[in-house]
Simulated assay, not measured.
Amino acid sequence: MTVDGNLPDPPADVTVEPAAPDDRLDVLRILDAAMLETDADAVDDRTAAGDALVARSARTDGVVGALVAVRPAPDRLRVDAVAVRRARRGRGIGSALVAAAVDLGESDPAVEAVTATFDADLRAFYEDLGFAVRPAGAASDPADGGADDAGDGRAGAPADGSPERLEGRVSVPGREPP
């Protein structure tokens, strides 16, 4: 997505759609293969709420990517995890999943912004999708899930010594936060 609202389409051989309960194992496997911590019950909850998305191969009908979003506040939708099968990376599937999450936020009148917290090496990916990026925990908005997303009070420096974390936000057009 860009600031003017142009969202990327999925590749021609992929569709992005809400995850169904039958997609649970595929979603968990894809997120696990990307080494993303995911709670199976949370995936079930987000699927039931319509906040989990899958990218499906048109050729095989198999799930090739997954995104799980959470709602830390009624006016926020946060991308919690997004991953694509290794063999399908670099083809725009992850971008299409995040764009679909932005669409999901835009279709919900209560959502003012879609947010994500991510490693610094994904900054360009999120900026290309229209996210305004800042260090995680910097000038934190309580609606984004707390005063300190980094965990130790140091913006962008997680307590466990892991790589710098950033967060991004796309405001929903016409519904700018006050």
Results as ranks from 00 to 15, higher is better:
A138K: 12
A69S: 15
G161H: 11
D23T: 00
P177M: 08
M1F: 10
A136F: 03
A96Y: 00
F131E: 02
P163T: 07
D51T: 06
A55K: 00
A33R: 13
L67Y: 02
L7Y: 09
R123S: 07
A136C: 12
P177I: 03
A87E: 15
L67M: 07
G92I: 05
R71D: 09
D80P: 03
A143Y: 03
V102A: 01
S107T: 05
R165M: 12
R165H: 13
L77E: 04
D144Y: 07
P177H: 14
A42T: 14
G65L: 02
A12Q: 12
P11F: 03
L166S: 02
T2V: 10
A157V: 15
D144L: 13
V68T: 05
A66D: 00
R123G: 04
A55L: 01
R46P: 01
P163S: 02
P11M: 01
V111G: 02
P142I: 08
D121E: 14
P10M: 03
L77C: 10
A139T: 09
R165E: 08
A19Y: 00
V16T: 04
D26F: 02
V172A: 03
A157Y: 05
R91A: 14
G151D: 09
D80Y: 15
D32Q: 13
D39M: 10
D141H: 03
A143G: 15
E176I: 05
R123F: 04
G151P: 03
R59P: 00
V111M: 03
N6V: 14
V27H: 00
G65W: 01
G5P: 10
P18K: 13
A147E: 14
A34H: 09
I30D: 01
G62L: 09
V27T: 00
D80I: 02
A20Y: 06
L77P: 01
T47N: 07
D149F: 08
M1D: 11
R71M: 04
T117Q: 15
R134C: 05
P74R: 06
D128I: 05
L7V: 06
A48E: 14
R76H: 11
P177Y: 07
D75P: 06
V14N: 01
L7N: 03
A58V: 11
V54A: 00
R134Y: 08
